[in-house]
């Protein structure tokens, strides 16, 4: 293991958790990310090869999947964000490259994003005041790009009404966290 010590997007050695009545917001730096984009004319092969490798079908527009080891969210036409545990899969891009071969372009994205996991019955109340997504109509295993406090994010619904992840640009982790926590205080009665 190399000698450089990681810090979390919020600049800490350990991830931060904020608890409220009916809601918790947890910084999650433990997922590795890579974007996978099919090359022109290789869309079918790419989808087949990568789906077989990650053990679940690459999702369509607006959708996400969570498999045993890997998860994926649709981000653009023929383009996905693939995720796995950072421990053991820090080099997720290098894992995927040989799988996709000439059928796709793979780019490491782990540290482009900060991620906050939001769990609790007040989650819908929270997002209703943060972004224009119709969060109450959001199904489990869907993901959408949206804007929170002027920050472009992915809102990933893992369990409808209860369990979400927000992926935002890592450099704005502080601002994003501030927005989440401030509004959480407003929607969760003390």
């Amino acid at each position: 293991m190399h000698k450089l010590k990681a810090i979390t997007p919020l600049g800490r050695t350990e991830p931060k958790t904020d608890n409220f009545t009916g809601l918790s917001i947890t910084e999650n730096p433990a997922r590795a990310l890579a974007t996978l984009t099919a090359r022109l004319g290789h869309e079918t092969a790419c989808t087949a090869q990568v789906s077989a490798f990650i053990g679940c079908d690459l999702p369509g527009p607006g959708k996400s999947v969570v498999g045993e080891t890997y998860g994926a969210i649709w981000i653009a036409p023929s383009s996905w964000m693939i995720e796995a545990d950072h421990t053991g899969h820090e080099l997720i891009a290098q894992e995927l490259k040989p799988v996709a071969g000439e059928t796709a372009s793979v780019v490491e994205q782990t540290d482009a994003w900060c991620r906050f996991d939001i769990t609790g019955s007040a989650a819908d109340d929270l997002f209703e005041r943060l972004c224009n997504v119709d969060v109450r109509a959001m199904n489990s295993d869907t993901a959408t790009r949206t804007t929170i406090h002027h920050i472009g994010c992915y809102l990933w619904c893992r369990k409808a009404g209860f369990e979400y992840s927000v992926l935002g640009p890592r450099s704005s982790a502080g601002s994003l966290h501030h927005a989440l926590v401030e509004v959480a205080q407003a929607v969760c009665p003390v």
């Binding site: 984009t37 090359r39 022109l40 004319g41 372009s105 994205q109 782990t110 540290d111 482009a112 640009p169």
Partner: peptide, 15 residues
Amino acid sequence: PDLDVQLISTTEAWA
């Protein structure tokens, strides 16, 4: 539209 090229921002991924 028919050039085989894929673009993605990685500004934030690298220090």
